[in-house]
């Protein structure tokens, strides 16, 4: 494991931002910390970056203490702050050369600019770059020292589709090269696309951890359907021999085995009632459903 966090607690005065978080991240994989704003994601990452001391708990990056061994880790860990960190008056090529100069064997600056799609903007001042271009420059800064671990705080927040795809493909390259990648996001779609391993946090605690398959598979004994007309859940439950409930507007769940017979019975019952289901799904629920269940996030898919 390249990152290991055990029972981490981070406090700001009386406020407990992180309340006993444990998880780990391995090399050659993308680990996503997913959660709504205020869940403690940034505090956790900034602790790993060496900026926030822990009130309790133990964490290790590459076997070292993120705060005490900070000066050793800065050579081996690449970071991307949630925002800022770059002079508005500087140019992408200049700031990359500056950071390249801090390492013994940095990446080639021009190749790196090209790989994050900024070759044509290399001499434009940062203040004139778009939000997405700044994020990509910030990602390039994280990578210039050939890190073994990268910590990225909301790398795709507020950036355009093209920029997102570029960041995703860069993360895939890093995974393939064996780098450990830890990413925070509040964006479910993003997590679903990039994660090998997901840590769902809410209110400073881990509410679920696992691979996408594990997280969504845990709910495979459930039958989900969407129907926008009123549904008599009691009658449905009686007909199917399993309790039925509503989990969101127009989204209903039948607990119990989600086998083909049960799906057929649900279809038949709906037809009998003259109802149309827009979607019926057995098991394999989307991360979105799991996330809503776990965080009680309702319809707020990307609280920002």
């Amino acid at each position: 494991m390249v990152v290991e966090v055990r029972d981490l607690v981070i406090r700001y005065g009386d406020l407990v931002a992180v309340d006993g978080v444990s998880f780990s991240a391995r090399a050659g994989a993308v680990t996503v910390i997913l959660g709504p704003n205020g869940a403690g994601k940034t505090s956790t990452v900034e602790h790993l970056e060496g900026f926030r001391p822990a009130a309790a708990g133990r964490s290790r990056i590459l076997g070292m203490d993120p705060v005490l061994d900070h000066r050793h880790l800065v050579r081996r860990v690449g970071i991307m702050l949630q925002e800022g960190g770059i002079q508005p008056a500087i140019r992408p090529r200049e700031v990359l050369r500056q950071y390249a100069g801090f390492f013994d064997d940095p990446l080639d600056v021009d190749e790196l600019l090209d790989s994050v799609g900024l070759a044509h903007r290399s001499t434009t001042t940062v203040r004139r770059l778009s939000g997405g271009e700044r994020q990509r420059l910030s990602l390039a800064l994280a990578l210039v020292g050939r890190p073994e671990v990268v910590l990225l705080d909301e790398p795709t927040a507020g950036i355009d589709l093209e920029g997102r795809e570029l960041i995703r493909s860069t993360l895939s390259d890093l995974r393939r090269e064996g780098t450990g990648v830890l990413v925070t996001t509040h964006d479910l779609d993003e997590a679903e696309r990039i994660a090998d391993h997901v840590v769902v946090v809410d209110g400073g605690r881990v509410v679920a951890e696992g691979s996408l398959g594990e997280l969504t598979g845990e709910r495979s004994t459930t039958l989900w359907f969407r129907c926008h007309d009123p549904v008599d859940l009691e009658a449905l439950g009686a007909a199917l021999g399993a309790p039925a409930r509503t989990v969101g507007s127009g989204t209903h769940v039948v607990d119990g085995p989600a086998d083909p017979q049960q799906i057929a019975r649900l279809g038949a019952w709906l037809a009998e009632q003259g109802l149309t289901a827009t979607e019926i799904r057995a098991g394999g629920s989307r991360l979105e459903d799991v996330y809503r269940d776990l965080t009680g996030g309702g319809n707020d898919r990307s609280a920002s």
Partner: peptide, 17 residues
């Protein structure tokens, strides 16, 4: 201004020291 822009914080996570 470097402090306000987070430049110092970002440098703090680099090997500059």
């Amino acid at each position: 201004f470097e402090r306000q822009y987070g430049v110092l914080k970002r440098l703090g996570a680099s090997p500059l020291g």
